[in-house]
Write a protein that binds this DNA or RNA. Structure first.
Lengths: 228, 228
DNA sequence: CCAAAAGTGTTCTCCATACACCCATGC
DNA sequence: GCATGGGTGTATGGAGAACACTTTTGG
């Protein structure tokens, strides 16, 4: 019926990289130097090699663009509109990544292109169908954050309760009650009290916590389901 | 950096088709006639044409195999292990479909191959990485069923409360309390009481209901979230 | 001493859960 | 009349939501 020699779409990956800048959720974009969409901003991405999985391709692109290794990375969706790239048929597997912005000062990418962080509610016009990709990514992040402890991937190793709450408020787009939020998150036994405090703040300093990944895995085995 | 003329992986779609047979969740498999994996069972699928989206390719394959149109169809995940197909590099975008088995008596496919429904807990060995695809599909179905009203896609238009409950029990793999289940599902106002009853059963006949899609969409607008 | 954020308890409402018996129908 | 599944109500406990003031610290 079909032959392995039929014309094939080109296969690429695109990466939506989320970072948290104080109270603002941001994504990393790259300004395109060439046509099509020269001057427009786009997600970092590139072609999938014959000897790598799409996930490896995404990791490779991420490292090339940001130098970051070992970040949270998850497949998002595969975009295949026939005319999504004016140069020809290109199917793209999109991934999204969560990075700890503080740890890595990604000012510009390794290559000549301009790379910048943009607040998710102040994006420039995006190239290709990247606006669609962004919408799907935002929706996924919002959904996942509620029932999986992935928010910690956006925070520094040591963080305060207010930082987590700010994160949740930034992503979910609504205010949460401080007392109820703390009660809930502490009752899950997923945070280790580091017996340390913030430094260099002009007010009462907050206690620092760390996410207890091991206990999360152990609890998960017993049927525990994270939810906020 | 990259050229559009680089070698490209082949691109296929595979479809996990779920159906409900009384109390049993089943999937449709096709027996392979040729090598590799001749005689093994596999999900229906095929190559993506240059002028169709992956979703259209999946729909086309589904129609070719089952004759069904307009079923629930959703992208599942893209599988890209380098050696997943012994014939060469093939990346596959998997979809899953929910069909009303009663409506369509899919005994065998249009073409010569053997197509059969298998209970999900009694599957034969599967070709390629289709066991992985199946695992992801089951997990997705279980997850989605709880917070989106997609179960109705597996039931006839008119169904009884026991039928929905059986469906949930089959997919989630556990018994549910009859009174609590009914209370919950009726309280959502998503079921229209058709003022009709089952026929041809050797016991008290049950009331028939229909899913109220319009009201679901209206409620969703107002922030209602389905959950069982 | 002032500004700024940290930290903390109680009440109420509502929803999930547990649980057992009678009813209608066809054979 | 009996076997089979249909259909129904209540009591309890626990979790989510609402809500405001005191504490600490640096400047």
């Amino acid at each position: 019926m079909y032959s392995y020699e039929y014309p094939r779409p080109a296969l690429t990956v695109d990466c939506v990289i989320f970072g948290l800048d104080k109270h603002t959720l941001k994504i990393l974009l790259i300004q395109r130097a060439k046509e099509p969409f020269a001057g427009s901003w786009a997600f970092p991405g590139g072609f999938v090699d014959m000897d790598e999985t799409t996930e490896n391709a995404a990791k490779r692109e991420l490292e090339e663009e940001t130098g970051i290794q070992d970040m949270f990375l998850e497949q998002l969706y595969t975009f295949s509109k026939v005319d999504r790239d004016p140069r020809g048929r290109v199917v793209s597997v999109a991934y999204y990544a969560l990075v700890k912005m503080q740890d890595y000062k990604i000012s510009a990418a390794d290559d000549a292109q301009d790379a910048r962080w943009f607040a998710v509610d102040q994006l420039p016009p995006l190239a290709f169908d990247h606006q669609d990709i962004f919408s799907v990514a935002m929706e996924r992040l919002r959904g996942k954050l509620r029932y999986q402890p992935i928010g910690f991937e956006l925070l520094p190793e040591k963080f305060t309760l207010s930082q987590i709450q700010d994160l949740y408020e930034a992503v979910l787009g609504k205010k949460l009650d401080k007392r109820n939020f703390r009660k809930k998150i502490l009752s899950m036994n997923l945070l280790v009290d580091l017996q340390e405090r913030q430094k260099g703040v002009a007010h009462r300093s907050a206690k620092l916590y760390q996410f207890d990944r091991n206990n999360y895995l152990a609890l998960q085995e017993k049927g525990f389901v994270f939810e906020i």
